[in-house]
Design a protein around this nucleic acid. Structure first.
Ligand code: MN
Ligand code: MN
Ligand code: MN
Ligand code: MN
Lengths: 216, 216
DNA sequence: CTCTTTTTTTAGACAAGACTAAAAATTAAA
DNA sequence: TTTAATTTTTAGTCTTGTCTAAAAAAAGAG
């Protein structure tokens, strides 16, 4: 597995999570910040290797083997993120870029021992589940904040967007994993909402509410 | 810096340690397990970038800038080796290959925090000094075991060969860093020697004695 | 059902890094 | 000091992964 192949598999896996069916070449190109023609080339190679199913003009999807490789990389990514936050004093908005590099380190013992060293964590600093070695991912039955109605309550358990700017915004507002949240009011016009966290009330836009995961 | 460029700089740095003057193209090729023609190409590129001084047919040596990059990679390599042994239960013969990968991870904060997390170690699991951020390496005034005379004593402080097979041999013989050692007898014919460690006496060949560093 | 727009694939080119084979420079030998 | 051996460089090729431009297929509009 080259670094590039691994990144393609991971991208396809992540896209598959959101939309159903065969993944379009353009969707992959957009996620990878590359051109569709490059994607076609790589997809062909991965298809040769039996890691994706591909029919010309019909899009692609991961095989079982491809999916296992993808989840393994995601497992490594998220374990490293936990390590960086728990052991090396990184904040949750700083870890992603470094984890993008660390996820490609090849050593089974390394990742097993890291897992143990961290106490077999179940989730990464952004609330995302850490796959096990066989590729099983505990799918969260969580719900987006935007779907809560007026007066509903819940606990913040994750974020969908892990960009530094978004996470820093959350920090500034005092929005963090584990906090209790209540929807005080909802503006139908733009779907913005007034929320309460720890007795403080403030407005957030729909875009924000769209990227916060809640357990009711 | 690409991965390949970094590895070349590191190789040149390590060769410079042993022999003096300009490093020959062939020496680099041998260390990197590549061909001389590939080395010439890369040396030219590094020369363009001001990281090595190079004159056709005259060999190459690192500039101050090139040396700083090299020591920084070695710093990372050795810190990761400490991490693997101290925190993740790796043995000293298992760490090198993983550290070869980890040394290329780019994040200043990562390595600073790792250094602190490990308690600012001075040496790696093989007794090699860990360079500081400015490229200063505490050069050891240590001596090779092979140079000790009959009845001389010392403490084992390092190994020159970090190959798995050599380290496993040492483990089997009970030879480890920090142990006191005494030369009981020396065979002039083949330079093998009888040594004592913790009341146990046994023979070792010159090749072994050549790769063990001693502080008298 | 035909024409247009969008998506996807092909064809051809390029940069990085490596290799082989051959030429040039240096070093060693006679 | 000429010749022979060795070292180093050049020339040309290959693979990986990327790109642009153009062709082909699929999807949408009227
Ligand atoms: Mn991440
Ligand atoms: Mn994450
Ligand atoms: Mn090492
Ligand atoms: Mn070492």
């Amino acid at each position: 597995m080259t670094l590039s192949e691994e990144n393609y598999l991971k991208a396809i896996y992540h896209i598959s999570d959101t939309c159903e069916g065969g993944i379009s070449t353009n969707a992959i190109a957009e996620k990878m910040n590359t051109k569709a023609s490059s994607v076609t080339d790589m997809i062909k190679k991965l298809s040769e290797k039996g890691l994706v199913n591909y029919k010309r003009y019909k899009g692609s999807e991961l095989t079982a083997e491809g999916k296992l490789i993808a989840t393994n990389i995601i497992r490594k990514h998220r374990l490293w993120e936990v390590f960086l936050v728990e052991k090396l004093n990184f904040t949750w908005d700083e870890v992603h870029d470094v984890a993008e590099q660390l996820e490609h380190i090849k050593s089974e013992k390394l990742i097993d021992q890291l897992d143990e060293f961290l106490g077999f964590p179940k989730r990464d600093p952004h609330g995302d589940p850490i796959p096990d070695k066989d590729g099983n991912v505990s799918d969260n039955a969580d719900v987006l904040l935007v779907t809560l109605d007026k007066n509903e309550k819940g606990i913040i358990v994750g974020v969908k967007d892990s960009s530094s700017s978004f996470l820093k915004y959350l920090d500034k507002q005092g929005i963090a994993l584990g906090k209790k949240i209540k929807v005080i009011d909802k503006e139908p016009f733009d779907n913005s909402m007034k929320i309460r966290i720890k007795k403080e009330e403030f407005m957030i836009s729909q875009q924000i509410a769209n990227n916060i995961c809640i357990k009711k």
